[in-house]
């Protein structure tokens, strides 16, 4: 789920960079308020690596193939660190593997990073302090994990539908884009389950990682 270079109008790419610039500034400002901003860089780096590699593992679901995005999990574990981590991961994906692109980097970062921040808020807001209730923690993790990817897919679909050019068969493109939502639904389900598994593991072995 990466918006590629060259397919959308320039205004979309520029808007993406504007949004990403603002959110990056806000995230870094929130990180700077912490007593030790460098303390959480190790886990941010490791999750950036996971995010970077996850785009290479493809699951074919017609008409396209999907891969884990992990933005919900990154939001849960990293909090405000998630947005710059996703931005860096997307940059390396674009440079090394051509996923997305440099022009589309801002749009892709906004599309995946903002839902990560929302997932972080949802997880913390709906799961206050008491994490001994494993069922409730799992439900919150599932909502945050699957909701983040569902929101990203919705943004992707809206941008795609809003920017269909006259040079192609708009109806066919619209139909297949809406059909692809089914695949994204499966992806959201899988990511939600994966997020629950990771969060349950972290609650058991290192719950302080979820308190950033």
């Amino acid at each position: 789920m990466h918006i590629p270079d060259g397919l959308l109008p320039s205004s979309v790419y520029i808007s993406g960079y504007a949004i990403t610039g603002g959110v990056t500034w806000y995230s870094l400002r929130q990180i700077r308020k912490k007593s030790n901003p460098q303390a959480e860089i190790p886990q941010a780096s490791l999750l950036t690596a996971a995010f970077f590699v996850s785009s290479l593992i493809h699951i074919p679901i017609p008409p396209t193939s999907i891969h884990f995005v992990l933005n919900g999990l990154m939001g849960i574990v990293l909090g405000y660190y998630a947005f710059p981590a996703i931005l860096i991961g997307l940059f390396f994906q674009a440079v090394m593997f051509g996923h997305g692109g440099i022009a589309a980097l801002g749009m892709n970062a906004a599309m995946m990073g903002i839902p990560a921040l929302l997932a972080s808020s949802v997880f913390r807001f709906s799961n206050p302090l008491e994490r001994k209730q494993k069922t409730w923690t799992g439900i919150c993790a599932f909502i945050a994990g699957s909701g983040a990817i569902a929101l990203s897919a919705s943004i992707f679909t809206l941008v795609t539908l809003a920017t269909i050019s006259d040079s192609i068969d708009a109806q066919a493109e619209r139909t297949i884009t809406l059909l692809a939502l089914g695949g994204y639904g499966i992806q959201a389900l899988l990511e939600g389950i994966f997020t629950v598994m990771v969060v349950s593991f972290l609650v058991r072995v290192k719950p302080e990682l979820l308190d950033c």
């Binding site: 990466h2 918006i3 590629p4 270079d5 060259g6 397919l7 008409p63 396209t64 992707f156 679909t157 941008v159 795609t160 192609i168 493109e173 297949i176 884009t177 059909l179 692809a180």
Partner: peptide, 8 residues
Amino acid sequence: RQAGHGDL
């Protein structure tokens, strides 16, 4: 282009 994905 297909379903928002594609290349140039």
